[in-house]
């Protein structure tokens, strides 16, 4: 594999006052190659959004902060970069779109201004140039009457339209990486499909890398190259989308995939994973999934399992995987 565009190493994000910190992201490592689409999946509260926010250093501080690790973007460590350096990266090299298009746009500024100001700040365009740049972006993200929309305010647009505007803002400066945090969760199903298609198109057109965060496995299967499954602040399985979906190796991934209802099987009850996601203040020792794991062994309660290679490029953090590999 070529030199990764982004490499996160041993990232730790903690919350709360010093001394009573709770660890929300614990020793997370991942890489993102140029033009690659990486999916991060997991239940609510597993730390996927925090991981995304850390990359752009947008974690609200206080109460949260990055307590350790490195975030290397083209050799620069973003975890320790100055605010000024970060502002040259945010929106220019790495952009982000959010879950809630209804509130992510500023209600008191016109659409054209909200897109154009990124171009003015990062690319030094004049007002007139930024306006025509904004117009092009609106056209590109498939908004009808783009010239008229430039002068409108967010409340005059529907949710799907607003998410398109957010995408236009994020991609205006042609970033290397787009981080999309549950970009379709708040939208209707038909609109979801349109937005995903648009993201996929723009990704191949601009050749950018995408980190797609979602709890929707259907979304992941449609668009990503590689997938990382998170549980309670750690990555439990990582591999190509095909490998993870066809040969899920961590029990959590398996249960997650089994809990998707299918039409070809007659089911009276929906499959669920028993138990609850542990709260940050009360994380279990050893493997964090062991209280819910159907295959739990004594060793699971003692030490956190290392990450084992299932197949080249496909890793899972479960001792059962290791035993299985040795048995073969």
């Amino acid at each position: 594999m070529a030199e990764p565009l982004l490499r996160v190493e041993d990232l730790r994000v903690v919350f709360g006052p010093p001394g009573r910190e709770q660890v929300a992201v614990d020793g997370l490592s991942l890489t993102l190659g140029p033009g690659e689409v990486l999916g991060i999946v997991g239940e609510s509260g597993c730390g996927k959004t925090l991981t995304a926010l850390s990359i752009l250093r947008l974690i609200p501080n206080p109460p949260g902060r990055i307590a350790g690790g490195q975030i290397l973007f083209r050799g620069q460590d973003l975890a320790h970069a100055s605010e000024k350096a970060m502002n040259r990266i945010r929106g220019k090299e790495i952009s982000m779109i959010f879950q809630e298009p209804m509130t992510a746009l500023n209600p008191v500024f016109k659409i054209g201004e909200q897109i154009g100001e990124t171009l003015r700040v990062h690319d030094g365009l004049t007002r007139a140039q930024a306006r025509s740049g904004a117009l092009q972006m609106l056209e590109r993200v498939g908004i009808s009457n783009p010239a008229q929309r430039l002068g409108q305010y967010p409340h005059e647009l529907s949710g799907g339209m607003r998410q398109r505007v957010m995408i236009a803002i994020a991609l205006a400066c042609r970033p290397q990486i787009l981080i999309a945090d549950e970009p379709t969760t708040a939208l209707d199903v038909t609109i979801q499909a349109q937005i995903l298609l648009l993201l996929r198109e723009l990704q191949s057109e601009l050749g950018m890398a995408v980190v797609l965060i979602t709890h929707d496995l259907g979304v992941v299967a449609q668009v990503v190259d590689r997938v990382a499954v998170m549980y309670a602040g750690r990555i439990v399985e990582e591999g190509s989308a095909a490998a993870v979906f066809e040969r899920p190796s961590h029990p959590y991934t398996r249960l997650l995939l089994e809990s998707i209802p299918t039409l070809d099987q007659q089911q009276d009850r929906l499959q669920t994973i028993p138990g609850m996601v542990p709260s940050l203040s009360n994380l279990p020792a050893g493997c964090r999934f062991h209280p819910r794991c159907p295959d739990v062994r004594p060793a699971c309660r003692e030490a956190a399992p290392a990450s084992f290679e299932v197949a080249p490029g496909h890793r899972a953090a479960c001792i059962a995987v290791n035993n299985y590999r040795h048995a073969n």
Partner: peptide, 22 residues
């Protein structure tokens, strides 16, 4: 605390713009 302030920061707006404008 609002999302649009986070958006402004994610766009790389300088501090004076995040506070003084958005």
């Amino acid at each position: 605390q609002q999302d649009y302030v986070r958006t402004a920061r994610a766009k790389g707006m300088p501090m004076w713009s995040v506070y003084g404008k958005h």
